[in-house]
């Protein structure tokens, strides 16, 4: 018997996958080499230990975060690369439409709030930029902003870091300017309609 055939028979025997004819073929081999009989029992123990030690397929840790980060990474990837997007890109963009509105409204509210606090100046200008995904723009140095889609809540959260607290003197409903303009922090949101 060729060695390749022997190897295949022995492997399939260890896996309990031999048919009747192959079983007879194997018996002949085992009569010639009885020491091979131990292979199967030993392998069963090794397999049990391997399955004890190695992971077989539990869910990934932080699965929801995994999905949302993946969406973000793909969106960034598509913006970075100027190569034609995959066919599915249309659907991807479709997915974003639903949250453009609330993010846009939030940005408009912040812009309106800022407009009540300062005269227009170069720092308050909207920066136009290309790209297919929304851009959070913070005009002051030291302030950063990013967003995170929270699928379970059906919402998007904008994180603004480095922003000082609004003063108590600010009347959000009045729409008029107050004395302390230094507390102004403007966050604008730019979006491109897909």
């Amino acid at each position: 018997m060729k060695s390749e055939r022997q190897e295949e028979l022995l492997v399939r025997w260890m896996d309990d996958e031999l048919n009747e004819a192959e079983g007879r073929e194997l018996e002949e081999l085992l009569q010639e080499q009885p020491e091979l009989r131990a292979l199967r029992d030993q392998h069963a123990l090794v397999r049990r230990d391997l399955r004890e030690v190695y992971t077989q397929g539990d869910d990934i840790p932080y699965g929801d975060f995994f999905q949302s980060r993946l969406q973000r990474a793909i969106a960034e990837e598509e913006n970075t690369l100027e190569t034609p997007a995959p066919k599915a890109a249309t659907g991807w963009k479709e997915m974003f439409r639903w949250w453009l509105a609330p993010v846009g409204v939030g940005a408009m509210a912040l812009a309106f709030l800022a407009g009540t606090r300062v005269a227009s100046g170069p720092e308050a200008e909207m920066v136009a930029a290309g790209g297919d995904s929304p851009l959070l723009y913070t005009p002051e140095g030291g302030i950063t902003a990013h967003y995170q889609a929270v699928d379970d809540a059906g919402a998007n959260v904008i994180f603004i870091e480095g922003l000082a607290a609004f003063p108590d003197s600010l009347d959000l409903m009045a729409g008029s300017r107050t004395e302390d303009e230094s507390d102004l922090h403007l966050v604008r949101h730019e979006q491109k309609v897909f």
Partner: peptide, 10 residues
């Protein structure tokens, strides 16, 4: 996915 449905990819 190939027809443009991102939810399917998800």
């Amino acid at each position: 996915c190939q027809a443009g449905d991102y939810r399917a990819f998800d």
